[in-house]
Nucleic acid binder design. Structure first.
Lengths: 126, 126
DNA sequence: TCTTTATTGACAATATATTGCCAGTAGTAT
DNA sequence: ATACTACTGGCAATATATTGTCAATAAAGA
């Protein structure tokens, strides 16, 4: 792996992650990072996201029905869930976790993980 | 809308839904219904699924990361969640629902719905 | 049984998301 | 400042999922 250069494209995408309150899609990253670099190509977003993922700086997030999103590994490592605003279509991190999931599991099944997505309106849209 | 003919393809797909313990993907429906009709084309599965959906007999289900699945509307109408077996990749309905989700919602947000997917091993794979 | 026509299934065509390619650009070290 | 080469971005190419087309088939009713 060659040395990582500090390009402004990379910085813009790193910054988008840092400022975000939730996981971002490729298109959202593209839009956000374009605020500082309007020539930014989608191809570059894909490339940087993949590289950051391989280096363990970000992690992918699956949400129902949509394509993958990404969030900082530091955020991903602490268990949390997401809130989907049905109006602006953004995702937000939420802390905490409902308890008592074991009792929902059918007999003979083994629970290893879970994934919760709340939905409704975010503060800006409500 | 022309009259609905009772073809064996339609019956096979209806039957797959009836026998299933969880939401099915297009490919799963194709595979299952092929047990009775080995000439069944994927095109036909898409067509029948869409029609059943338009007629309100089935509903689509979104699960994280995967493409849409479908389940009987009668099942969909009663609130429930899903268990994803990471070994065989099938989905199972689970009854019940964790409480206290309101307290997870950030200030100013409005909670309208939620979606929970448990994961682990099903009874056959455990 | 015969006729009508909805349905089927193979294949091509399309939509969408992601990646390969490559000439030009721009970090980085000397 | 210069050289080296990783990086960028436009476009083509690919992968995958879904749909259009149409001749052949098979329900349903006369």
């Amino acid at each position: 792996m060659p040395p990582q250069r500090q390009t402004k494209q990379l910085q813009a995408i790193r910054n988008a992650f840092k400022e975000s309150r939730g996981p971002l899609s490729i298109d959202e990253l593209h839009t956000l990072a374009r605020d500082s670099i309007d020539s930014l190509g989608l191809r570059t977003v894909y490339r940087i996201v993949r590289r950051l993922q391989e280096e363990g700086e970000i992690a992918s997030v699956q949400v129902p029905g949509k394509s993958d999103r990404y969030e900082l590994a530091s955020v991903a490592s602490s268990h949390h869930h997401h809130f989907h605003c049905t109006a602006c279509d953004r995702y937000f991190d939420i802390q905490g976790c409902p308890g008592g999931l074991e009792k929902l599991v059918p007999n003979g099944f083994t629970l290893e993980d879970h994934d919760l997505t709340l939905s409704g309106l975010c503060a800006s849209c409500a």
